[in-house]
Design a binder for these strands. Structure first.
Length: 260
DNA sequence: GCGACAG
DNA sequence: ATCTTGTCGC
């Protein structure tokens, strides 16, 4: 979907997801830890989560995309996008709140990552159209989601050790895995978005969690977005003062308005 | 009908 | 998501 038919209301967003559910690539196994050279994680930080945005404008937000080398887990490239929210947070419609800014952050990358990882869901969604499905279809890059809570899905508690997992189900369908990334710690919820198999998504998730419950990609993107947001809030006029030149230091886009 | 509900 | 101090542990 292009900017032209971007949903404005909840009803339009739901309809868009129902059309999207068939557009996802459910056949491609995509790359696993051995095939993928790079993986990009994306996340968004908000200055004001509650009012989000009203009818008039939107609150400040920062989207971040961080590319990691799968073999070494070292940061290859970073990109941030500073903008404003154009859609409120509504359960099941997170994609419409985060997609515009996430896309902008991804556009700032010079690398085209082999895989995309995002917070939230892919198929583990009421209409099988979570953020990872939207992002995978939009970019054409294999994408999956790793969420911290199961939302509407259900699962049996997996074994206590790292690597243990159980099926995530929704309406009697398999929608992902409850995967233990750290021994003795609550599991994460992995679900495919588009262009990658559940097996490869789970294998990559384990590859990306050598030390923490959440993937390094998510951690890096989360921290980058948070640091940049704090900087924006603390220095509204930038390090060079009012009217001064100097754009955003290093990687990063200039502030971009969300709407006219 | 009301509440709960990825981030 | 975001608001926040201390605390346990490598």
């Amino acid at each position: 979907m292009e900017i032209g038919d971007w949903p404005t209301t909840e009803a339009e967003a739901v309809a868009a997801q129902e059309r999207l559910r068939g557009a996802a690539d459910a056949t491609g196994p995509g790359p696993g830890p051995e095939e993928a050279r790079t993986v990009a994680g994306v996340d968004v930080a908000y200055a004001d989560s509650r009012s989000g945005d009203g009818e008039g404008g939107g609150s400040l937000l920062v989207a971040a995309a961080v590319v990691l080398d799968v073999a070494t887990l070292e940061v290859v490239e970073e990109s941030v996008h500073v903008g404003t929210s154009t859609f409120p947070y509504l359960p099941g419609l997170l994609a419409f709140r985060e997609l515009p800014s996430v896309r902008a952050a991804l556009d700032g990358l010079t690398h085209r990552p082999d895989v995309l990882v995002c917070d939230g869901y892919g198929l583990a969604h009421p209409r099988r159209a979570g953020l990872a499905v939207h992002l995978g279809v939009l970019t054409g890059i294999p994408c999956f989601g790793v969420a911290k809570t199961p939302f509407v899905s259900r699962f049996e508690e997996p074994g206590r050790e790292r690597g243990a997992w159980t099926p995530l189900t929704l309406d009697g369908e398999r929608v992902g895995r409850a995967l233990r990334t750290r021994t003795g710690v609550k599991p994460v919820f992995v679900s495919v978005g588009s262009g990658i198999s559940e097996e490869n998504a789970a294998a990559l998730t384990l590859r990306l969690t050598p030390a923490y419950r959440l993937p390094e990609t998510t951690r890096h993107a989360d921290h980058l977005a948070g640091r940049r947001l704090a900087k924006e809030l603390g220095e509204p006029d930038g390090p060079d003062g009012p009217g001064g030149p100097g754009g955003p230091g290093g990687p990063g886009r200039a502030p971009a308005a969300g709407s006219a």
